[in-house]
Design a protein around this nucleic acid. Structure first.
Lengths: 353, 353
DNA sequence: AACAAGCGATAAATCGATTTTTCCGTATTG
DNA sequence: CAATACGGAAAAATCGATTTATCGCTTGTT
């Protein structure tokens, strides 16, 4: 009955104060390293803290301070390697600065994105790293603006007039992919994309097309865009192939598009790179162990996270000036899924399943 | 100068009280739906809330209430599909009950796991869903026990004497994989595993071996275990093949092992299923679009999340009784990477790169 | 007419910290 | 020797809510 009390309540700063025979104010000062405390009392406080196993309640502490040492992070989903390691990096960087990272997923919904943002505002987070579902003009960014929140936009963004932005330089990367493909002799290339993220996707696409035509004006670039979902893309691609279209290479502007392309190739019994070449935007661990290994544009996750946190903390610390749009260079890994058209034995079209 | 105030400070409950001409206590009661308030005042409060755009500060609110409406979730990593969708599900379920989910990754470190747990304890979370790095006997679970935290252990656990556990029934699944392989005629099977998670892995392994030998006593089951890292496993596997060992099937007990197996097959120019069959524990989206599609044991992520949250909230609401160890059934998807030994044209051993 | 009961609402206490103000000695200064 | 300065610590205010205690007023009972 007596021992049961052990688990009852965590010691508060007052318990420490009592135990050390000083006031709560003094305890607080000691723990924050304020110099105007007698060494003897400092020792008594530390002893009491040790003996009671006291730890500051960060939420109560933050309640009194104006800002809370919490950073919010919002990503469209947790399932992909890209956002997964993004969150990991952001978490690491926030902790390094003594902040806690609270992550949430918008599950590809702009409505939810705004809800989460409102919740984070309720939490009085110091700042937010937002990877918007669509682009920098969504309702979430508007909410942040309206409520004077400090934040940084990443990934599916180009530039914004209110917030710093950090994203992969997918435009240069796409041009490089174009060069790689054209130089290998490809003159009929299909590009797959998701229209949702309007500006970003369009920029990638235009950059790709421009470079391709610049290097070989007779290049034919077909495009299949799906508005928001992947399934329409799959059926559009199926129709496209069924019509007899036969590009020699496919460039997918997003990861799931790469999966769709691969599965459609399978359906038709085509193999990379002999029957068709494939490059995907966004890398994944499995891409280098399959046969063939899939060529991919690797996004600089770590760099994006570092730059984003850097910019965010600058703003938190009150730095002014116009918003900065940062682009981090990608790496293009040309793996075995890319070859020259007609270099290998075509397997024709048949041999389903 | 006047309008600048707009962004200055969020309205507090006192601002609402002033604006509505009532006391803060009344505002609080109205917002919590207490009946003993005059309808007229209810209306005034709602009007003021609306007009000021007031929202309660959940952290301040939780400070006064005993428990905070926060659930902590700790997973070994964010990068994998498995834990990614686990977090997504847990987030969804916590929000459904009006709780916020705060997720953190232990990055496969038991030390960090304990640190995070301590931090969550500092936050006074109502409960924790812990996916331990190693198993249920780690320091983190000990910490939870010692501090009287309420929590549920998931994934790499069997059963615990203090906490409810929920995990995939990998034992039955492994037995089923054994059956599938033996029935197809495999008599020499290599199993790959990570020793770190001792009990879980051992259980899978034993169950597999037992069923295999029961169905065909002449079956040879080789085992390669690596303690904690993947690279040693890779080199062990390389040595194993270099020695001339030639199993007809490989069963990997964890996802990255499946990747290692695939990449070693590539090195040697072996193709599934003609040269060797492959089954992996843990499914991933890409496995069904590669050629061949990779056979896998699919863990019931959603079910695990649901059961874990269910158990957790039961404990939070004070339900007593001994801890329950729950097992959720897996699905075994035999895809194209599995065939019968010697059924296809062997490509021998050469043809590297 | 006096007192208890009940309703609605407010004032005050509380949660666990930080920050500002006040206060009490001691030391310095003119 | 009186006046001021200062170091160190306690007391009190504060953050933004919830909860308890209290109060004034109406209604009902005897």
């Amino acid at each position: 009955m007596v021992h049961r009390e052990a688990h009852a309540r965590r010691p508060s700063i007052h318990d420490v104060a009592n135990s050390a025979g000083v006031s709560a104010a003094t305890v607080s000062k000691v723990l924050q390293g304020v110099a105007t405390v007698k060494p003897e009392n400092v020792q008594r406080v530390f002893d009491a803290v040790e003996q009671l196993g006291y730890r500051v309640d960060p939420l109560a502490s933050d309640l009194r301070r104006a800002k809370r040492r919490i950073i919010g992070a919002i990503v469209p989903e947790f399932e992909s390697e890209f956002f997964g390691s993004m969150i990991t990096q952001l978490e690491r960087l926030a902790e390094q600065r003594g902040y806690a990272l609270v992550a949430a997923s918008s599950r590809e919904s702009e409505a939810r994105e705004k809800e989460i943002l409102a919740r984070m505002h309720d939490w009085r987070v110091s700042g937010v790293v937002l990877a918007p579902v669509r682009n920098e003009h969504g309702p979430a960014a508007g909410f942040m603006k309206k409520n004077g929140m400090t934040g940084v936009l990443i990934d599916r963004v180009l530039a914004d007039d209110a917030f710093d932005t950090v994203s992969a330089d997918s435009v240069s990367a796409s041009a490089e992919v174009a060069r790689e493909l054209v130089e290998r002799g490809h003159r009929h290339i299909l590009v797959l994309g998701l229209g949702e993220q309007a500006a970003t996707v369009r920029a990638r696409l235009e950059s790709f097309r421009e470079r391709a035509l610049q290097l070989a004006p007779d290049t034919r670039v077909d495009v299949i865009l799906s508005e928001s979902d992947v399934e329409p893309l799959r059926s559009a691609l199926r129709d496209y192939f069924a019509k007899g279209e036969r590009p020699t290479a496919v460039y997918s502007l997003f990861l799931r598009g790469t999966l769709v392309a691969l599965s459609e190739f399978r359906r038709r019994g085509w193999h990379c790179p002999n029957d068709i070449s494939l490059v995907g935007f966004d890398d994944a661990e499995w891409m280098q162990v399959t046969w063939p290994a899939i060529a991919a544009v690797v996004q600089p996750v770590r760099q994006i996270a570092i730059q984003a946190m850097d910019a965010l903390f600058r703003r938190i610390e009150g730095e002014g000036g116009p918003p900065i749009a940062r682009l981090e260079p990608c790496k293009v890994l040309m793996r075995e899924s890319v070859g020259s058209p007609g270099s290998g034995p075509h397997s024709g079209g048949g041999k389903r399943q």
